[in-house]
Design a protein around this nucleic acid. Structure first.
Lengths: 187, 187, 187, 187
DNA sequence: TATGAATGAGGCTTCATTCAT
DNA sequence: TATGAATGAAGCCTCATTCAT
């Protein structure tokens, strides 16, 4: 792991634990085992470090979501697989998930950055949704609406489960959740 | 409007526009047309002001969600009505919605506060879900899961529509969205 | 007790307990059962209130020191009596004593005020010391030196006893202390 | 002189001149020729800076008091020597002496700190007093009482001489003062 | 290139004082 | 006359960023 990654990793840990405002550059440096000045060799400002971290986190998420996706399967199968991946990732990578919540509320990250980071996964999802709609098995609604609804539902459950694990039984299975998603968007 | 409300309103506007970290007490005071010290006659700390704002926003949201709910209707009708209310509120009250996003990520607001603020709406929703499950028309999943999934889906769509209105057609109707919610949780 | 005294008394209690810097006018007002503004009807500024309090405390102290002083006795008897009074007062009026310590360190009280407040007791003491010196039973040193040494010794013991009562045995008697004073200054 | 000492020295000068409450951190920094933030690299809080200053002043005082003390001399000689040192130090180091007065009244300095700072000098003094009592030449009173009385007398005279030099003739000699101390405690 | 001491702007909070009621 | 809400200057402290080493 090179120094740049060390810094990003240190920032990720610190921000996930303490929040954005309680994670001064000096502490990030300490966690990354380098001087505060060094961080400014790799990142223009703290804001740009944050931005890069956000992009990195979304990359990891989208990569995880698409892992094992096989174009030979049916759209329904593939969508279910992606949703399961999504929930698994959010649920198993607590730190990244917490971090994403913190960064999502950061006003210094522009909309362009956010949109760009999701382009990849969106293109896959939208193709599947288009195909499903062509097959008449998916509601004829804008892709953005369908994809966002499913993702929002899954992410919100993952978040609530993280924050208040006692509230939902632990017996939440991937099948249950992907079924919710699928039933929502299918015709 | 008394001074306390003035301050809350000023804080709400500022935080919605600029985010929590970019809304110093001094600016809140300026917006509220009072001295900085005055704020501390009404709120112990900035944190407690934030907390109160959060509770207030959730109160408004939950009241809006339950408006016009009539116990004479069927569970499905009532759930659809509440979901429509929810989306309408999130969609029409842009400022409150943005504000909630900012406050939701604020680490100083405890889980107790958050849970308490939702008790009201949850008790209504959970009763409806229980009845629906008893009638065999709603999936036999934990209420928390069902309610959170629907709310998360709606809220995420409202947020995305707010941020990137061009992405989704403007032709999103309440019926479409409540249908998504209902299809997701029904048997 | 009129309002002016109420305010002084309230300030005395508060400052003795919490120190000068932690006794805002607003709290003094609360203790005195009046509004903050009312205090400014009786005292020009907080500083002048403090000053008056200091003078009042020294008055009480000097009055107590001279109580029961009878010009018919010998200088030694009268000095011993005054010293005993002094120590008794410092020892029994913990609040006033603490208060005096706090006020003594307050830079806003001018030297003139301090000197003036002691004029009374000094004139008595100095006369006794002069007489003792004339009688050849008291050291031929400046009165200020003799009086200050004895008072300083007594006051420092009283203070230490107040702060760390465990350090000195409780068996300190007035006789012991007045003997120390007398032996110090006698020929 | 390194920066830490610069800061302590600047604080000492400022507080001695203007008092504790009129010596904001910003001014200490200016005197120390550094930014306000720099102070916080060396001291956790303003209070801890004050505390350290207090301990330092007492260290200097106690070291000065014991300078030239030789265990080969008699207890009386050694006590007189220490008292002379004490008065000399208080009298010659006006700034330190004023500073000690200000710091002694500071409520944030705990009793533990105060007691600890005096341990050194006390152990020497108490041994001498014990020996003198064993020899039958010193009054049989608690060491704390004897030591405190002498120190209190000397310190109060030094203080008064500092504040109102005109009041006492300048002809106060060390011999006079050590004689007062010795006569007070001897049998 | 790497460091971390230094900086100072800016945030939160307190409180003496004023003034409309 | 009495009140206490309002004010804003000023205090303490944090932290992103720079720069000499």
């Amino acid at each position: 792991m090179d120094k740049r990654e060390q810094i990003l990793e240190a920032a990720a840990n610190l921000i996930a634990e303490q929040g954005l405002q309680s994670s001064p550059v000096s502490q990030v440096a300490k966690q990354a085992c380098c001087g505060a000045g060094t961080i400014y060799r790799y990142f223009e400002t703290k804001e740009s470090l944050i931005e890069e971290l956000f992009v990195l986190m979304l990359q990891r998420l989208t990569i995880a979501c698409l892992e094992g996706d096989e174009s030979s399967r049916t759209p329904e199968q593939r969508l279910r697989h992606i949703w399961a991946n999504t929930y698994n990732y959010l649920h198993e990578n607590e730190r990244d998930c917490v971090l994403l919540d913190h960064l999502a509320a950061c006003p210094s990250i522009s909309e362009e950055i956010r949109a760009e980071a999701l382009e990849n996964i969106h293109s896959v999802l939208f193709a599947l949704l288009d195909q499903g709609k062509a097959d008449g098995i998916i509601k004829d609604l804008p892709n953005e609406v369908l994809a966002t609804f499913a993702y929002g539902g899954l992410a919100t459950i993952a978040k609530k489960r993280r924050i208040a694990p006692h509230m939902m039984g632990i017996q939440i299975s991937n099948e249950m959740l992907t079924q919710l998603c699928w039933d929502a968007i299918r015709t």
